[in-house]
Write a protein that binds this DNA or RNA. Structure first.
Lengths: 264, 264
DNA sequence: CAGTGGTCTAGACCACCCT
DNA sequence: GGGTGGTCTAGACCACTGA
């Protein structure tokens, strides 16, 4: 076990670059030149043998590439080359309340109940005040790309037809009712934040990914009538999404991403 | 080696939750209740022994927590509890050109040279057209939180006093000159995108993190005189930063992040 | 120097998918 | 069943930090 690890592949001996990092570089080049979207890579045991490293080391390189959204690994299937990230438009204040546009959403469920403390705080409410909660999935090109939870205080949208039978039809109509009433308010503005998170069990399931999957967490506060009238927390798959702001229209431009480098 | 792995800790036997994921949950609870920012955790060998798992398994859990920005690990030092993420204001169109505000920036270098193809494409230029390139670091609370590269075509800002001696003073004056001239143009608007990336060697060094560190890549296109007059690519440390948009003023509000959960 | 996290190995078993 | 990725182990050495 544990051979000496000293000789580390590059041959230069000047900089002790980790094997997995070098491997990643090699694979990036291969991905750029020899593989197309959707192609399946050789399995991990073969690859590790081919590169003369332990499987764990190869996996460390693949982990990086998956984080970068270049690969998708599926248990029982294999490792395939991922499509370039999708540009996901984040609507601007001028475009109104969430989900008004031409985005495709799928209602998951809806309810009216006391909100968790963190949500009440963000909405400027006393703890445990009742809020409407709507959960929905954002779809794009037939795929789930994000999960959103919308919170609206009952003091903003008071009455929603109470259908007690818990069914997807009832949820759906409740959700539509909340959204409809929200859109009657004049929207004064909004503020957003984006950060990195990981999907917990629930979200992970909605996003069709394993727990721990990195996500972009987009939090939006909607201002109306001089207060925070609604709050959304959206988690987008970090591997497949690029959130775009104010890019009204053109979205499919490849950004000059991290690997920008001067010719010097 | 490799004991049977069958009994997996939870005791329930109903759901085969991975050990490292369960460990993460345990550690999250411990961090929330028993540790304060800056406190040092026991070392990995002790922790793995205490939890009765291999060190690699413990590390898998710590990797997750580091990705979430809850921990910072430093070679030779130890693992410490991270401070909550900083809210990093991303200036709005109304606030003008980059770096105009009260943000703290530190010039790294500046030059005028043919741009890489991806940059030219994003700027709508023929390949290899000359652009001014300014690299600078964004500081906050005395820490480096991001690295930004600003690209401005020479056709937008033509002459910059040519100082051929390559020095930090010369770079700095060149950079200021470019920014000053940019600010004379009327800014029509801007479009942004945010995505997840990993820091390559160069960026990683600027951000004082190891290569492979996850970053939020913020790409901004500035519109002026009916064209894309400038492009910035900023990489922010994903573990310490939460990008905020249009939150003019209040920034230090804890967002209702991924772990939002209804009481149901 | 001793102590810490970072990398690497060889081998094992598990969960899942498809045929 | 046979193949794939996912998890786990025990042990080793390396690179960095600070006394």
């Amino acid at each position: 076990m544990g051979t000496t690890q000293a000789a580390n592949g590059t041959g230069t001996a000047t900089a002790p670059e980790p094997k997995y990092w070098h491997l990643r570089t090699v694979l990036v080049r291969a991905l750029d030149s020899e593989f197309g979207t959707g192609e399946v890579l050789p399995n991990e045991r073969d690859l590790s043998a081919r590169f003369g490293v332990a499987r764990a080391t190869l996996r460390q390189a693949l982990d990086q590439l998956e984080l970068e959204g270049r690969l998708v690994r599926r248990r029982g299937i294999g490792t395939v080359v991922a499509a370039p990230r999708m540009g996901v438009p984040v609507s601007e204040a001028s475009e109104g309340w969430p989900g008004t546009g031409r985005d495709s959403w799928r209602i998951v469920d809806a309810e009216s109940a006391p909100a968790p403390a963190s949500v009440c705080a963000a909405l400027g409410l006393p703890a445990d005040e009742a809020v409407h909660t709507v959960r929905r999935l954002r779809m794009m090109h037939g795929q789930v790309i994000g999960a959103e939870t919308l919170y609206v205080p009952e003091s903003v949208v008071p009455h929603v037809p109470a259908i007690f039978a818990k069914s997807s039809v009832a949820d759906s109509s409740r959700a539509r009712s909340v959204l409809r009433q929200l859109q009657r308010l004049e929207l004064d503005g909004e503020s957003r934040s984006v950060e990195l998170g990981v999907a917990e069990e629930q979200q992970a399931q909605l996003l069709e990914r394993p727990p721990g999957t990195p996500v972009l967490v987009l939090t939006t506060r909607y201002q109306a009538e001089g207060r925070t009238a609604a709050l959304t927390v959206s988690t987008y798959r970090a591997d497949t999404c690029r959130l775009t702001f104010g890019a009204s229209g053109i979205v499919d431009v490849t950004p000059a991403a991290a690997e920008v480098r001067t010719a010097s």
